[in-house]
Amino acid sequence: MATRLRPSSKRCAVIGGSGFLGRHLVERLVDKGYTVTVFDIRQSYTIPGVTFHQGDLCDKQALLKALQDVLLVFHCASPAPGSDDRALFHRVNIDGTRTVIEACQEAGVQRLVLTSSASVVFEGTDIKNGKEDLPYAKKPIDYYTETKIQQEKLVLNACSKERGFLTVAIRPHGIFGPRDPQLVPILVDTARRGKMKFIIGDGSNLVDFTFVENVVHGHILAAECLKAESPLCGQAYHITNDEPVRFWDFMSQVLVGLGYDAPRYHLPYWLVYGIAVLLWFLTLLLRPLVAIKPTFTPMRVALAGTHHYYSCARAKRDMGYQPVVSLKEAITRTVESYPHLRRDVLKGAKS
């Protein structure tokens, strides 16, 4: 009779591995000698040695196949924030995460690392050097965040040293970098439409923007430090670039780097926020008749006009975290990765 090989600690699965963060995580894990299985609704790339399983996050049997002989799982599957598809957020972030936990426990997975979000404690008002002991937001800024709160609670509450199932949550903030389908493309599109001329507020508000490689580094450190005797068990950790920057300075550096003008006209925060709230109410009232998607939502105004940056002290203490790429280098590398979005290139293609 053939002897079944003992699962290797270097064998892992990345749920959501076809996404922006997931792909960067998979690439780094392969570089570090891990054997990687990807589970996602779609396959967007191929890497030698990486096994792909396509399936629905709520299909436990499909997950169990992907998790065979896997001891470590990274769960970074989530719809992108900004959508108004509440049913999708609930299905993926809550129902899907319950299924992931059940499948992990049945498959004998020992460690589960969740990609959460620092926004789980953000209510649209200033947070300066926020620590992980801040309470969950009672009034989350959007439904995406509401489901991320419930998701994080599910994962952390599932941690059990007695059952040999350990969990930890990583809370990044403002992820950006090469291949990002959100921040830079949306920023450029907004600038091309002439809607990046205004600064909301006085422009002094500090925010964390975190390079994707630093987020990946934090995930892998957490996985490697997650042991029964470690303080990581059942805890959440902020992972950022640890370099709070003025929100509008960051936006300007990216825009100018791609050949666009930086925003320069100031609008009072309270005025823009008030208009955003009115538009939001108007959208709700008219929803049965017409679909309106206002540019300024209360959530976007709050993100652009308030302080929200977080302390990495706990991650430094418990897992030795330090950013591996500085903010300056990260912005340079990100801008250089989008030559097709440069103003002169797009202008030439249009003419």
Rank of each mutant, 00 (worst) to 15 (best):
I186W: 00
Y143K: 08
D249S: 13
V92Y: 09
L284N: 11
L166G: 00
I127Q: 07
P268V: 00
T51A: 07
F176D: 13
H340A: 07
P181Q: 03
I186M: 15
T297F: 03
S18E: 02
D242Y: 12
D344Y: 02
G124W: 06
T99W: 07
S117N: 08
Q150K: 09
P185V: 03
H90C: 06
A2C: 04
D202T: 01
I127K: 09
I101A: 03
G177F: 01
A330Q: 01
I239N: 06
D180S: 02
A66E: 14
A80V: 10
V290T: 11
N205H: 12
L29A: 08
G174L: 03
C159R: 02
V324I: 14
Y144C: 12
I275L: 11
L187W: 04
L286H: 04
H24L: 04
F20R: 14
L271E: 15
G22W: 00
L286Y: 02
M319R: 12
G19S: 12
P48K: 13
E329F: 01
A169D: 05
F74L: 11
P263E: 02
A302M: 10
Y309L: 07
V73N: 09
H24T: 03
L64Q: 15
D95P: 00
T297N: 00
H340W: 07
E27Y: 04
S9Y: 03
A222W: 02
F89P: 03
F176P: 14
F89E: 10
A77E: 07
H173E: 13
F165S: 01
I170R: 00
H75Q: 13
D208W: 05
S311I: 06
L25I: 10
A107G: 07
A191D: 00
S252V: 04
R11C: 09
E229I: 07
R4Q: 08
E132S: 11
D318H: 09
F247T: 15
T51Q: 14
R264C: 12
V212C: 04
L271Y: 10
L289K: 13
E152F: 02
P268A: 02
K10N: 13
C58T: 15
H173T: 11
I127V: 15
A291M: 14
V290M: 09
N93Y: 02
E162K: 09
L63C: 13
P81I: 09
A87G: 14
A236T: 05
L303M: 15
Y338E: 01
K197H: 09
C76W: 08
V216F: 08
Q322H: 13
E229N: 10
A118M: 05
S326P: 06
T240N: 05
T167Y: 10
A158W: 06
T167P: 01
W280A: 11
E146L: 14
D69G: 08
